[in-house]
Design a protein around this nucleic acid. Structure first.
Lengths: 349, 349
DNA sequence: TTGTAAGCGTTATCAG
DNA sequence: CTGATAACGCTTACAA
């Protein structure tokens, strides 16, 4: 019913007494249409309630007016991160303003990541994609480029890339965490890192190592897959060491929260016996006890900047690199002065 | 370059020595094509690497081959819930198998929920939508119907609806939580509910009240917006009462975690002084200390069942209602025997 | 400045 | 079972 009533460009043209072509020109405000014609056409279109058919437009222009975000099979690990939600909201903030739409694809065991990108490109479902969680030597870059898609990467790739990138200085966040802890007197700080094949995880780990070394601090890094489970495991390993760290810097909030649970379960007081910092400043973190000290990144802003970069790329702009504001350390209850002596055996009772 | 090389149905027809029409028939395996023709056509198509153009198909059939999910402005509250991720993954499990794609739209202050649905329908970006977090007298149902979109609702609507629905028995989950607590000797149990205008929040609250009444238990319900912040506030209110509850049943994990933080902050031991249960069995919950007892719903399954229902609706099936398996209570450390006497003043020291 | 007509790549119709 | 031919609704040379 609503379909039957839908006017086409031809209806508008007829009613306005002009040709279809002219209506098209007027709509896409292109030069070569007299002001009066344009006004009349737009007026007629408005009163007829005409909206150009996106499908017809897609067919004739070869564009989809949609961008994609592929979530790897690590759904439960990385995508469960609240970061993602804010990030997507940021993308949408911009996409929705430009008539684009966000297509979300989740890679499954039955359809791997690569296949997912291929499918999206094959069907021309999207004009471009957002590449998150960049990996070392990320093959998605070449893949996506070869598929003829535009793209923007989150974080600067380690290799060549024809795409724009938007990044935030993870290192600065980690450095401020280390500085904060060092200032509190900590001398044995550990880092629970994400997978080293992920560039941002790696950068955080490197920043940690360097910052700690600069401060003359004993350091220890354990690598995980970013999941709460592995964050908990890593914490157990660290706390079981002879020279137990007095503080742990986690590469994300999920792991930090899990680590907090482990420490408390083992009878350690946080922050008296162990200080903990997270990364991303997840909402829930501030409500735990103690509230989580964390590095706050602006995921939503990141999303909108990335979306803008992608749209620019689609418009033919040359690749650029944007750097977001430095993340800030939000100090809360989970960090405190280093224990005076060896904390071993300093459990609650 | 990859566009230029792309063969069309005409190329395939020519090469196979048949008409375009026949290729189309063969592709959509429709009756009226001899087995030999079909085989040859498909073979030629394969060797030419031909894939039908989704855009052309969309234009001529009037379908989009996409379904939408609109996330309300309550992004930070409801969508930050890990439930959503698993749910979307479940949708994708099915969509990806049927050549559909998931379009995610986030309502913003500048573009309200209603406008978002309108936009999606106006541009015919999607063939159908998934309606989550059903509300009382939900106006989205009439809206979406009037927009000519197919839909599936999560949970059974309270009014008339032309759409299929998929729901899980929230009540059963809450009842098992109450039964569990009652069995542990709790006689004053509170419920921190979600917004009563949301049907599932309301149903949980009702189930709570009834189950508690049946068990002859003192009950108290505080309504929130589902956010961790309000969950924390509600907890503070409850704990400040003269007759403090010995257990709190939260309507989601986020609030339960925040509540746990509040209790601990006030010096209460969980579960010795206060038992806590969550809802949804979020991954992080099991890693806290104490680990969260929670009602486990299968969000991913929910997503795939909903997706299937939506595809059926698009295929012209009559509306149905599907009920998922009853959620199970996962008992962990956050619940324990009720304190012997009035717990007031039973803080850690 | 405006009109005309040829695509874009399918699906659908309808005589052969 | 085939094979033209006409939609589908827009964009875009090319003419006028």
């Amino acid at each position: 019913m609503e379909d039957a009533a839908r006017p086409t460009i031809a209806d508008v043209a007829r009613r306005a007494g002009v040709s279809k072509g002219l209506v098209s020109f007027a709509l896409n405000d292109r030069p070569g249409v007299s002001p009066e014609s344009r006004a009349r056409i737009l007026e007629v279109a408005r009163e007829m309630g005409w909206t150009p058919s996106l499908r017809a437009r897609a067919l004739s222009t070869g564009r989809s007016f949609a961008c994609g975000l592929v979530i790897g099979r690590s759904t439960d690990v990385v995508a469960a991160d609240p970061f993602f939600h804010s990030f997507m909201a940021g993308l949408e903030d911009v996409f929705s303003m430009s008539g684009q739409v966000l297509v979300l694809a989740v890679a499954t065991p039955g359809r791997q990541e690569t296949e997912t990108y291929r499918g999206l490109a094959e069907d021309r479902r999207v004009d471009g994609v957002v590449l998150t969680d960049l990996r070392a030597d990320d093959d998605r870059i070449a893949l996506v480029a070869s598929l003829g898609l535009a793209a923007v990467t989150l974080g600067r790739p380690d290799g060549d890339s024809p795409f724009s990138s938007v990044s935030v200085d993870d290192g600065a966040g980690i450095r401020s965490a280390v500085a904060h802890l060092a200032g509190l007197g900590h001398r044995r700080i550990a880092h629970v890192a994400g997978p080293s094949r992920m560039l941002h995880a790696r950068r955080r780990a490197e920043a940690f190592t360097r910052a700690a070394a600069d401060a003359g601090i004993d350091t220890l890094v354990v690598e995980t897959d970013f999941s709460a489970a592995e964050g908990a495991d890593a914490t157990r390993v660290l706390l079981a060491r002879d020279e137990r760290p007095t503080a742990i810097v986690y590469s994300n909030d999920h792991m930090a929260m899990a680590g907090l649970g482990v420490a408390q379960r083992e009878g350690l007081r946080v922050p008296e016996d162990l200080s903990i910092t997270g990364f991303d400043d997840t909402d829930i973190g501030r409500h735990l006890f103690p509230a989580l000290t964390s590095v706050a990144t602006d995921a939503r802003e990141w999303g909108s900047v990335a979306a803008r970069a992608l749209l620019d790329a689609l418009a033919g702009a040359t690749p650029t690199h944007a750097e977001l504001a430095e993340p800030a350390l939000i100090v809360r209850g989970s960090t405190g002065p280093a224990p005076q002596h060896h904390p071993r055996g300093a459990g609650r009772d």
